[in-house]
């Protein structure tokens, strides 16, 4: 990071990215439930209505499939919509529009039409919001050719990835986390600062074991790494940032250094982005591996409401530590 920076919260970093791009390009608008007068369910859009007016910060009737379809249509005619869902969970109502239309319009029309659009919302577990509000939806969407999926863990990446997403000519799904909104961090003030898609970053350097992670779980992994350092294990933490496209090169290069990997993320263990990461590593760096790759995931169970039960279902630093020890062949 070069040039002046500003310390902001994660939600402000997202907002900075959107505001800068809306100032830069008047085709960009944001639509969603309560993004205007209420300033966003999580205050991500605070002040934007005042700044840009109701034609560009649009309170939509409550229907995700409706404002998704409408924004896909608007993107087809040349606007660049940002669609906010209150949470990614509710995008399920608009899944047909995302899967069958946004993702495929360019392909189906033989390149005659395309959909430059950003879908964004908090994703995965929050705190005690039950099974219908805790889905890690990136796994569903990253499966789909035609879509790009990013999930920042830091404030700088939140801003930079948002700007890249808005400038992209294809649909981008941007995954936030309710639990990160208050995180503080430095972000570059340069309006041309962007973060490229498909490039992972190293959140912590280490030589013994690699933890691959993204979004909130990067912070859980860092916490685990600090604990493990006390026990003499030097752990590297890779923050994927971009789930599709995926930074295969970084995975291979890193595992070639540590020879052991754990993938830690929210989402069920059956399939998903984590399984994809494991496949890439074992296929492309098989000879580099000194142990089977482990995954630390949400338990294969719909999220319970009860706080104690929930803690066991969400992947924890303790579970990450155990997995790292297993791949390092250290007894617990």
């Amino acid at each position: 990071m070069s040039g002046p920076t500003k310390s902001v919260r994660f939600r402000e970093a997202i907002r900075m990215g959107m505001v800068e791009e809306m100032e830069r390009d008047d085709r960009v608008y944001i639509v969603g439930e309560e993004v205007g007068h209420y300033q966003g369910a999580y205050k991500v859009t605070e002040g934007m209505l005042e700044k840009f007016g109701p034609k560009r910060v649009i309170d939509a009737p409550i229907t995700e499939s409706g404002f998704t379809g409408i924004s896909i249509g608007a993107a087809m005619v040349g606007l660049r919509p940002i669609v906010e869902y209150m949470t990614w969970n509710f995008s399920a109502v608009a899944f047909d529009q995302i899967l069958n239309n946004a993702a495929k319009m360019r392909q189906m029309s033989g390149g005659q039409l395309h959909v430059p659009i950003v879908f964004r919302a908090p994703n995965a577990s929050a705190k005690q919001v039950g099974s219908q509000h805790s889905h890690a939806m990136e796994h569903f969407y990253a499966h789909v050719p035609g879509l790009k999926v990013v999930a920042p863990a830091t404030c700088a990446d939140a801003k930079g990835l948002m700007k890249t997403a808005i400038r992209d000519d294809d649909p981008v799904l941007y995954m936030e986390s309710e639990t990160l909104y208050n995180l503080k961090g430095d972000v570059p003030e340069d309006p041309e600062f962007t973060v490229p898609f498909g490039k992972a970053s190293v959140a912590r350097q280490g030589g013994d074991v690699t933890i691959v992670s993204w979004s909130r779980m990067v912070h859980v992994s860092l916490q685990a790494a600090e604990e493990l350092a006390k026990e003499g294990l030097d752990v590297e933490v890779i923050d994927l940032r971009s789930l599709r496209p995926l930074d295969e090169e970084a995975l291979v290069a890193n595992v070639s250094k540590t020879h052991r990997a754990v993938v830690a993320y929210e989402g069920w263990p059956y399939g998903g982005v984590g399984a994809e990461v494991v496949d890439r590593i074992q296929r492309l760096a098989f000879d580099e591996l000194d142990a089977p790759i482990e995954r630390v995931t949400t338990l294969d169970y719909p999220m319970p409401y009860n706080a104690k039960l929930e803690q066991h279902v969400i992947p924890s630093a303790e579970r990450v530590i155990e997995a790292v020890k297993r791949v390092a062949y250290r007894s617990a």
């Binding site: 409408i70 249509g73 529009q97």
Partner: peptide, 12 residues
């Protein structure tokens, strides 16, 4: 699905 898209197109 084309119904909402046409509305968005016209609105834009």
């Amino acid at each position: 699905t084309q119904i909402t898209q046409a509305v968005g197109f016209a609105w834009a």
